[in-house]
């Protein structure tokens, strides 16, 4: 039982201007979280399981064309649409702002998957099979989900728990940005990202790098988006899910459709 914790509220900032689409986060996540192998068949069945994925959008066409990349993961919504529909309380909000999936409560109704506007919940249609030798790689801190279970991004909660044990319980220091980075405690995707497009931190920590973005976006609701001082926005703000993931807009120096004679 976890109690007497330092009061964290975890959050992530994704800078779309820095994301190059390289897939380092995607594979780092799969390696950390025992995600079943995405075989050729899972692609054909459109059942690819990527807790974080890179979506690519086309804008325009040759020769004035852009491809946009956006990493999409569980948004850990404060008003999470997946939570109230679960008849088993398998998905709930913990006291650190995480949307958590309790695998041994899940009976596989998939209501949460239907209700998630971000499509970041995944159902195990089959028993996740690895060739026997590859099982040596499985992370012992993360449950292997069986058939019939829904799963999703946890913000690598196992790393956060280990961090709390080592940093807060043992040394008494607060788990701040520096401690997260130093101890390999931030989510695997954040550590991997070569361009540092992903930033993770504690919204309750005044010194956290993510703080100014959350303050800005929280202070300006959807109807006042032009008053924001940062590039921050939330995905699908109109559905008021209040995600704990904030995106920073792409900066466009030469936007398409602005044929101003600039060559």
């Amino acid at each position: 039982m976890v109690s007497n914790r330092i009061d964290h509220k975890w959050g992530m900032v994704v800078d779309i201007d820095k994301c190059t689409g390289c897939q380092a986060c995607v594979i780092a996540c799969q390696a950390e979280n025992n995600i079943p192998l995405n075989t050729k068949d899972t692609f054909l069945q459109k059942r690819v399981n990527e807790w974080i994925r890179i979506e690519r959008y086309w804008e325009g066409e040759y020769p004035n064309v852009k491809a946009r990349y956006i990493p999409v993961l569980c948004q850990h919504c404060d008003n999470a649409p997946c939570e109230p529909v679960c008849p088993m309380y398998a998905t709930y909000h913990n006291d650190q702002g995480l949307n958590v999936q309790v695998y041994n409560r899940c009976v596989g109704t998939r209501y949460c998957i239907n209700n998630c506007p971000y499509q970041v919940r995944f159902f195990n249609y089959w028993h996740p099979g690895w060739p026997e030798r590859l099982e040596n790689q499985l992370n012992p801190d993360v449950t292997v989900r069986s058939r019939g279970i829904t799963e999703k991004c946890t913000f690598c909660v196992q790393r956060l728990r280990r961090a709390e044990l080592k940093v807060e319980r043992q040394s008494g220091n607060r788990l701040n940005d520096e401690a997260l980075e130093k101890g390999n405690y931030a989510p695997a995707c954040v550590h991997a990202c070569p361009t540092s497009a992903l930033t993770f931190g504690d919204q309750h920590d005044d010194g956290a790098k993510i703080r100014s973005y959350f303050d800005d976006v929280n202070a300006h609701n959807i109807h006042h988006e032009h008053e924001r001082e940062t590039r921050g926005y939330r995905l699908m703000e109109e559905v008021n899910t209040r995600p704990n993931v904030i995106y920073l807009k792409k900066v466009d120096q030469y936007p398409l459709g602005k044929g101003d004679g600039h060559v």
Binding site: Y57, I70, L235, K250, V251, D252, P255
Partner: peptide
């Protein structure tokens, strides 16, 4: 997947 918003800001 369905589409998502990509925010762009100019310059």
């Amino acid at each position: 997947y369905e589409s998502r918003e990509i925010g762009n800001i100019i310059d």
